[in-house]
Simulated assay, not measured.
Amino acid sequence: MLGYIPGNSFMHRVNGTTKLVALILISVACMTTYDTRFLLFTSVLSILLFKISHIKWSDVSFVVKFIAVFSVLNLLAVYLFSPQYGTVLYDSKTVIWEGFGRFNLTQEQLFYEFNLVLKYLSTIPFVLIFLLTTNPSEFASSLNKIGISYKVCYSVSLAIRYIPDIQVTYFDISSAQQARGYEISKKASLLKRVKGAMTIVFPLILSSLERIEVISTAMELRRFGNHKKRTWYSEKKFEKVDFLIMLFSVLIMGVSFTLIYLNQGRFYNPFS
Score class of each variant (00 low, 15 high):
residue 51 K to W: 11
residue 151 K to W: 09
residue 252 I to E: 02
residue 95 V to F: 08
residue 204 L to I: 07
residue 164 P to L: 08
residue 227 H to R: 11
residue 137 S to A: 15
residue 162 Y to D: 09
residue 16 G to P: 04
residue 66 F to H: 06
residue 71 S to W: 12
residue 5 I to V: 11
residue 76 L to F: 10
residue 119 K to H: 13
residue 101 G to L: 09
residue 210 E to C: 03
residue 149 S to A: 14
residue 51 K to P: 00
residue 13 R to N: 13
residue 142 S to Q: 03
residue 253 M to G: 05
residue 69 V to N: 00
residue 86 G to N: 04
residue 177 Q to V: 06
residue 55 I to F: 01
residue 29 A to T: 04
residue 154 Y to N: 11
residue 144 N to E: 14
residue 160 I to Y: 11
residue 1 M to K: 11
residue 53 S to G: 06
residue 170 Y to C: 09
residue 220 E to K: 09
residue 227 H to F: 13
residue 23 L to G: 03
residue 171 F to H: 12
residue 138 E to A: 15
residue 78 V to I: 15
residue 147 G to F: 10
residue 43 S to H: 03
residue 200 I to E: 01
residue 238 F to H: 03
residue 249 S to C: 04
residue 196 G to F: 03
residue 158 L to N: 10
residue 117 V to Q: 02
residue 224 F to S: 01
residue 240 K to T: 14
residue 251 L to M: 11
residue 252 I to N: 00
residue 177 Q to F: 13
residue 228 K to Q: 09
residue 244 L to P: 00
residue 8 N to I: 06
residue 12 H to N: 11
residue 183 E to I: 11
residue 100 F to H: 05
residue 181 G to M: 07
residue 95 V to M: 10
residue 204 L to Q: 05
residue 37 R to K: 12
residue 215 I to R: 05
residue 138 E to K: 13
residue 179 A to M: 09
residue 223 R to A: 15
residue 106 T to E: 05
residue 9 S to D: 03
residue 3 G to I: 05
residue 269 N to C: 05
residue 168 V to W: 04
residue 159 A to I: 15
residue 11 M to D: 03
residue 16 G to E: 07
